[in-house]
Simulated assay, not measured.
Amino acid sequence: MGGSQSSRKISVDNENAIQVSQEALDRIQAQLNAKQAEQPQQPPSPQYNPPPFYESQKRQQENAAEEVYWARRIENLKRAHEKINAGMLIEYQKTLKEANELFEMAQKDKIASKLPPCQAEKAKVLECYSTNPDKSLVCSVLVNEFNDCVCKSRIAAVSASS
């Protein structure tokens, strides 16, 4: 149906066609060239072209205005960043100080916990024994105090670890 092409052909004979000789065409072309040569060339319609100095001055003013705008914007951004950096520096200093204080406290606790308990009582017992080498019963009261101190520190250590 629609898949095949039509095999019909149409031909049109133009009985009113005009044949122009080459000589006639050359004459018409020569006349057109002569008319164009006779007519003075008309300049294009006048348009206002501002002087180049005005254009460059206007462009310079626009550039100067943009420079001022961007310089102001950059300064505002610098100030904002300086404020942020100052705040961050203050917070950094506070945090550093707190961390150092905590570190020092932890160091003191480690030092205190590294020392054996009851050092004062131990020193008293040793002094008593050195001053009374032949009378050890004289130091019995100090030895009992040292023993009580050691027991208390053991109880404290056990209760702290559990």
Rank of each mutant, 00 (worst) to 15 (best):
A86R: 12
P117Q: 05
C118S: 04
T95G: 07
Q107G: 02
K94N: 13
L96R: 09
I111E: 14
E82T: 06
N100E: 15
P117A: 07
L96M: 07
A80P: 00
K108D: 02
C128N: 04
K110C: 02
K97C: 09
Y129I: 01
A80C: 04
S130D: 00
A80G: 06
K108Y: 00
A123W: 07
Q107P: 00
L126W: 04
E127G: 01
Q119C: 02
K78L: 08
I111C: 05
N85I: 09
K114F: 09
Y92F: 15
T131N: 05
E121P: 02
H81E: 11
Y92D: 06
N100G: 03
I84T: 11
M105K: 14
V125Y: 00
A80R: 10
I84G: 01
A106M: 07
I111T: 08
K78S: 12
V125I: 01
K94I: 08
A123D: 09
C128H: 01
F103A: 12
T95M: 09
S130V: 02
Q93N: 15
K83L: 09
N100L: 10
L96N: 05
A123P: 02
L126A: 13
E104D: 14
Y129A: 03
E127Q: 03
Q107N: 07
E127D: 10
A120C: 10
K122I: 04
A106I: 00
E82W: 10
K83R: 11
S113F: 11
K122S: 09
Q107Y: 02
D134K: 11
N85R: 10
D109A: 11
Y129F: 12
G87H: 12
L115G: 07
D134C: 03
Y129D: 02
E91W: 11
K114P: 02
E91Y: 14
Q119G: 03
L89D: 13
I111R: 05
T131K: 05
I111Q: 09
G87M: 11
G87R: 12
L115K: 14
K97R: 15
K110P: 00
N85C: 03
K78C: 04
A120H: 15
R79H: 06
